[in-house]
């Protein structure tokens, strides 16, 4: 059902945990839907130096968060805003259609963390102007 890459990231997730005094923290999803993703970012000079995650969710959700953190470490915040779940799905070698939404969650968690960073630092991030994190939590999937 899952590709080898998905299973690898699921079995041995990269970047698990939290970052103390993180520059941006985003949490999306809720337990009602069976998935919560929390992403911590350490940002220096608008570059994402480190990313960590905590996830409550299925194999696809865990693998997606692992892969997403891998992909955004080293990226600038402008690049990270452009980051889409498609990149995660591709990097994972594909996801079953019913599981693609778990990768969307990863994209949203990153946006949410960037938003938090923008709020904290009073920055305007291009592409995040109309973003409001609450929107993401209303409906399951």
């Amino acid at each position: 059902m899952y590709t080898e890459i998905v299973m690898d990231h699921f079995k041995n997730p990269r970047n698990v945990g939290s970052i103390e005094n993180a520059d941006g923290v985003g949490q999306v999803g809720n337990a009602k839907c069976g998935d919560i993703m929390k992403i911590y970012l350490k940002i220096n000079d608008d570059i994402i130096e480190d990313a960590k995650f905590e996830t409550f969710g299925c194999g696809s959700a865990i693998a997606s968060s692992s892969m997403a953190t891998e992909l955004i470490i080293g990226k600038s915040i402008n690049e990270a805003v452009e980051f889409s779940n498609k990149a995660v799905v591709e990097a994972l070698g594909g996801l079953p259609p019913v599981k693609v939404h778990c990768s969307v969650l990863a994209e949203q968690a990153i946006k949410s963390a960037l938003y938090d960073y923008a709020q904290k630092t009073n920055k305007v991030i291009k592409g995040l102007e109309n973003y409001t994190p609450e929107d993401e939590e209303v409906h399951c999937h």
Partner: peptide, 9 residues
Amino acid sequence: YVEGESILL
């Protein structure tokens, strides 16, 4: 605090 599918996997 955990989800069933990941347990099954």
